[in-house]
Design a protein around this nucleic acid. Structure first.
Length: 825
RNA sequence: GCGAAAGUGGCGGAAUGGUAGACGCGCUGGACUUAGAAUCCAGUGGGAGCAAUCCUGUAGGGGUUCAAAUCCCCUCUUUCGCACCA
């Protein structure tokens, strides 16, 4: 017989809803706790990854509820984005319709899982009441000088007349028509996240983030101290700046390397005397994959631009080469090449017969150009460097920088790998950028009272050239808010990362129609106490959200420095060792599993399978195992209900058998273990394992009816603790059993289970005896036995004596309550 | 290529310097049953042995330590990210 999970789950979901258990309490004296799982893209159905992720959030929510916190666990939808638009183009539908349909389905699935979500606070980024405030934020960023426009390259398919995302480019070709993708320069909007680079490197405001996420973000930001050096073009004296971390090698600079994207190059390409080879070279390099281009083992190539500049320190003439190994996005987009002391420059110079010059000598002073097979990149002594000769190269860096600064040749500077955040998207299904272009007034922001700029419904998807919104003539044509004259709307929409950069704050005050959220609501709830989501967001989403948060703080909207106090990066759900995906055909539909085994079983399996931050492997038989366990729990209660419900709390210690005393130890140990694993380690799999082990111990007692009355009390207690211990992982069955055993309050009101420390104390301690690191025996000694006595006891052990024969004991190490290690030779 | 992490039985995993393999799956044997399913009990890294016990074993190689899955170095493999996927 299977336990009646369908009735039980429906019953409790209804009760939680009717009693509004998971609504936040207003004006509460209780301390708040904000649990947030990354909101899903409404793809149409929950997948196992969602179920796994949200089971973690719900377990934490229920734990904190039991602890008495005023908990908020909201849910919403990251509803803008490319998939909905692509789907609409393919199926000739509208993203608004399909998205809302999908949201309906997903909400139903969330409810059938019984998650304790605060549905009053649902957000969906594609609804005007949400995206209105995204536009509002764009304006505030603009006003603070943190939103600006500049030219930038995009993937462009000439055939489809459209901009392609990186994932739509397959081996350099368009995913739809297969034609080659080119780089096209467009005016684009950027957020100046680099202004916050220094603050984003500071993680002192977070309480508990995985060290690896912090490391990844630090590397992503990539702070680098160095020197800006200004070279002058010979032809017109124009300044070409480079950034270098090796100013000590400046006297060894023999050429200049710049990428084809460099503004100087675009200018030269337009001049009449430009060579065909140079044009072709630039074209070719610009369309190469950027990751491959910077790869160390990629063949370096370049072409002499025909222009030269002057090395400011010695007036040497330096050729300017256009190359494939320098990126426009980093530093100043130009590199002073010192082939003798940089490996990439070395390879390049050898290939094109560019001269080299040694300016740093090794300790033996025996570096000779002709014999070098690779660049000398180690520190050394400066040579051929004028007044800096004989200086230590490391020390010379600051000296040379200072000297150049004094003589207006450059200065010390800090550069970041982090680039400004390009937010322009030439797509329909996104948040319109609230800017109007007027012939007279130029770039004008849409006034706050006119927000939101509504996304028009009647767009011609897939049939337009370039930007979809351009097809809606009546929408594009508008009047200038300043002069009332004819004007056009910006037709770019915003990156969906903008929407997800502040949603956590909107949840605190979703009903607000005057502002994104009130300061009071934000102060009550922020920062998010526990944020849960995938590691794949380590650099982008999490960094963008931190940037937004710091900006919101700077304009007085929030008080704290960080959006997410604690972060848990959960693993993905795999099957047959691979990520579940339609293309691999290894997708398991959660709904089917919920219908067959119930939400409690699915949750229990997902949480038991692996620790939350690791990937978990789906297993059909494993799910049955989780189901079997819940049935075993149910059966113990079903078989012994009167006994468990009615047994007296008090009992006479003298009448307990050793076996029952061990059961009592198991009860209290299990409670301790569950609390410890959740509270201190967020490791649910071992907490669940402990409950399973305890249940095995209960089964080990056999027929409870045969126990004496005092023993039955202990037995009853061992069962009564289970609903409280299991509540976070399998809440429905736990509530049912709790009620069946005579309790009228709900489990979150009952609070966390308690254990008694006195029952965790064992009077005999087992010591493992090691000789030279190998286990040779075990001894049982009474608690608090002295160290000398333990040593003596260990040496008496028969097997130990056997292994000590012919050896001398040099040292005995005693680790209290654990082991004795004997060193003998 | 660069950055980050992971690698333990047939499988998911436990142990974060101190008895490797808790717990679950699977498998094997037994009980119950006309039979099957379900359930319950027992066993289960590999090797030797009747047994006590011994040897071996945490991707591979080296090191630190009385003691290493755990710390350090090198190699290999897998996963995530690389800025227009969310």
């Amino acid at each position: 017989m299977e336990y009646p999970f369908i009735q039980i789950e429906q019953k409790w979901q209804k009760i939680w809803q009717e009693k509004e258990v998971f609504k936040t309490i207003t004006d509460s004296e209780k301390e708040t706790y904000y649990v947030l799982s990354m909101f899903p893209y409404p793809s149409g159905a929950l997948h196992m990854g969602h179920v796994s992720n949200y089971s973690i959030g719900d377990a934490i929510t229920r734990y904190k509820k039991m602890q008495g916190y005023n908990v908020m666990q909201p849910m919403g939808y990251d509803a803008f984005g490319m998939p909905a638009e692509n789907y609409a183009i393919k199926h000739n539908s509208h993203p608004k319709i399909t998205t809302e349909e999908n949201i309906e389905i997903m909400r139903g699935q969330f409810n059938s899982m019984g998650f304790g979500l605060n549905w009053d606070r649902e957000v969906s980024t594609c609804r005007p009441d949400y995206y209105r405030w995204g536009q509002w934020f764009f304006k505030r960023l603009y006003e603070e000088g943190l939103a600006y426009k500049r030219k930038s390259f995009v993937n462009w398919c000439e055939d489809c007349q459209t901009v392609l995302a990186n994932e739509q480019v397959e081996e350099g070709n368009c995913w739809r028509c297969g034609k080659v993708v080119r780089q096209k320069e467009l005016e684009q909007w950027f957020f100046k996240i680099t202004d916050y680079a220094e603050q984003l490197l500071d993680f002192s405001g977070v309480k508990d983030w995985p060290e690896r996420v912090i490391t990844m973000q630090k590397n992503w930001i990539g702070r680098s101290e160095g020197t800006r050096i200004d070279f002058k073009l010979i032809e017109n004296g124009e300044i070409l700046s480079v950034f270098t971390t090796r100013p000590d090698t400046i006297f060894g600079c023999t050429f200049m390397a710049i990428p084809p994207e460099h503004p100087l190059v675009s200018r030269w390409l337009k001049e009449s005397d430009v060579s065909r080879e140079m044009q072709e070279f630039c074209e070719e390099v610009m369309n190469e994959d950027k990751i491959m281009r910077t790869a160390e083992d990629t063949t370096k190539k370049g072409i002499y631009s025909g222009r030269d500049c002057l090395n400011p320190v010695n007036g040497a003439k330096v050729q300017i080469w256009i190359t494939n190994y320098v990126l426009m996005d980093y530093g100043t987009g130009a590199v002073m090449a010192v082939p003798a002391h940089d490996q990439r420059d070395f390879e390049f110079a050898r290939k094109y017969n560019i001269p080299m010059k040694i300016v740093i000598q090794n300790e033996e002073q025996n570096l000779v150009l002709a014999e070098m097979t690779e660049a000398y990149v180690e520190p050394g002594i400066l040579v051929n460097s004028s007044q800096f000769d004989e200086m230590d190269s490391v020390e010379s860096k600051s000296a040379i920088s200072a000297w150049m600064s004094k003589n207006n040749m450059g200065e010390s500077t800090v550069t970041y790998r982090l680039r400004d955040w390009g937010v322009s998207r030439q797509r329909y299904w996104g948040n319109p950028i609230p800017v109007i272009y007027c012939q007279k007034c130029g770039e004008v922001l849409v006034p706050d009272e006119d927000l939101p700029v509504l996304l028009p419904d009647n767009v011609q998807l897939g049939k337009t050239t370039s930007n979809p919104l351009l097809s809606v003539e009546e929408w594009v044509h508008t009047t200038c808010p300043k002069c009332g004259g004819e004007a056009r709307r910006e037709t770019d929409t915003m990156d969906t990362f903008v929407d997800s950069s502040w949603y956590y704050a909107r949840y605190t005050d979703t009903a607000n129609t005057e502002e994104p959220f009130s300061k009071a609501a934000a102060d009550q709830w922020l920062p998010v106490d526990q944020y849960i989501g995938g590691i794949e967001h380590a650099c982008m989403h999490l960094l963008y959200a931190r940037f937004f948060h710091k900006f919101m703080r700077d304009i007085g909207m929030v008080s704290c420095d960080e959006p997410f106090a604690r972060l848990l990066t959960q693993g993905m759900v795999t099957k047959d060792g691979a990520k579940m995906s339609k293309s691999k055909g290894n997708v398991v539909d959660p709904q089917y599993i919920i219908d067959r085994f119930g939400s409690d079983t699915v949750r229990l399996f997902m949480l038991f399978g692996s620790p939350p931050e690791k990937d978990s492997e789906w297993s059909d038989t494993g799910v049955k195992g989780a189901f079997r366990f819940l049935n075993r729990v149910w059966r113990i209660f079903d078989d012994n209900l009167e006994l468990i419900r009615d047994a007296a709390d008090e009992y006479n210690e003298a009448n307990l058998s050793e076996k029952v005393k061990q059961l009592r130890y198991s009860t209290h140990f299990t409670v301790w273990k569950v609390l410890h694993d959740i509270e201190d380690r967020l490791q649910f799999n071992t907490a669940i394992a402990a409950i399973m082990e305890h249940l095995n111990n209960i089964y080990g007692i056999g027929d409870a009816g045969k126990l004496n009355q005092d023993e039955q009390s202990v037995y009853a207690e061992s069962c009564r603790k289970i609903p409280q211990a299991l509540y976070c992982f399998a809440p429905h069955i736990s509530e049912e059993l709790w009620q069946l055993t005579g309790n009228s309050e709900l489990l979150h009101e009952a609070g966390l289970p308690v254990f008694e420390a006195k029952y965790l104390v064992k009077d005999e301690i087992t010591y493992v005896i090691q000789i030279m690191g190998k286990v040779r025996g075990k001894i049982e000694v009474p608690l608090n036995t002295g160290i000398e006595e333990i040593k003596a006891e260990a040496l008496k052990n028969e097997n130990v004596q056997k292994h000590l024969e012919g050896k001398t004991v040099k040292k005995i190490i005693v680790v209290p309550n654990k082991l004795v290690s004997i060193v003998a030779k």
